[in-house]
């Protein structure tokens, strides 16, 4: 993982969130307040702008800047949650222009830890965590199985992470929300896919796409 790949990932995530804004907003209308798509699009658009005007020395600096920008621009719960996750990822990465796949995996887990610490959600609460946690587990498992040598290792691990995130996202449909605004609906939140888990899948899919090219 180098600066170019870090930038390519965030760029791909911004594209995906822009293309799916309507869809995320519709999911949020069902069990929340109809703003998730717009907020994520605004936030990752701002990340793109911030990165265009910066020359970060390593991938860690790219993610720290992305996280800080998300906290400053998004608002709601998703701003602090995604912002803290990206900041923790950035700060967990060793200095240098390039980090290996294992260090990047440890950074992804640091991001998950930061998000859980801030939001207090556990797996099964119908949140971002339901896509993020299995993605990090799958990433680690893929590295253990196939090794992390070169970009090929990272690409395979990212592909596994995106697949697990998708599965986790789909598994939120039958869950009853216990955190966030959807929790106010009680049993009425059952039967809807969680918008936060959906945006998390989009971000991991963007990582897989960026790492594959």
């Amino acid at each position: 993982m180098d600066v170019a790949l870090a930038r390519a990932w965030l760029d791909a995530a911004a594209d995906a969130l822009a293309a799916r804004t309507e869809e995320l907003t519709s999911l949020d209308a069902a069990i929340g307040d109809s703003d998730h798509g717009v907020n994520m699009n605004r936030g990752f658009g701002a990340v793109r702008t911030a990165l265009a005007g910066a020359s970060p020395a390593g991938p860690g600096a790219v993610f720290t800047l992305a996280g800080t920008t998300l906290v400053s621009k998004v608002g709601g719960a998703s701003g602090p949650l995604y912002g803290s996750a990206f900041r923790a990822l950035g700060k967990a990465l060793p200095e240098g222009a390039e980090v290996d796949a294992a260090a990047f995996g440890a950074g992804l887990r640091a991001g998950l830890d930061a998000l859980v610490k801030l939001g207090g959600a556990a797996p099964g609460d119908k949140t971002i965590v339901d896509a993020y946690a299995p993605a990090v587990d799958a990433y680690d498992a893929a590295l253990r199985e196939h090794g992390g040598d070169g970009d090929g290792g990272l690409a395979a691990a990212a592909r596994a992470a995106a697949g697990a995130a998708a599965e986790g996202m789909r598994a939120t449909v039958p869950l009853q929300a216990r955190k966030g605004r959807a929790s106010y609906l009680g049993e009425r939140s059952i039967g809807h896919q969680d918008p936060g888990a959906t945006s998390t899948w989009l971000i991991f899919q963007a990582l897989a796409d960026a790492a594959a090219t």
Binding site: D33, S34, D35, V38, N39, R42, V71, S72, K73, V74, G75, G76, A77, G79, P80
Partner: peptide, 11 residues
């Protein structure tokens, strides 16, 4: 004031 139905940001 934040965006519509979105909390303000820390800044």
């Amino acid at each position: 004031p934040g965006e519509v139905f979105t909390s303000p940001v820390p800044d």
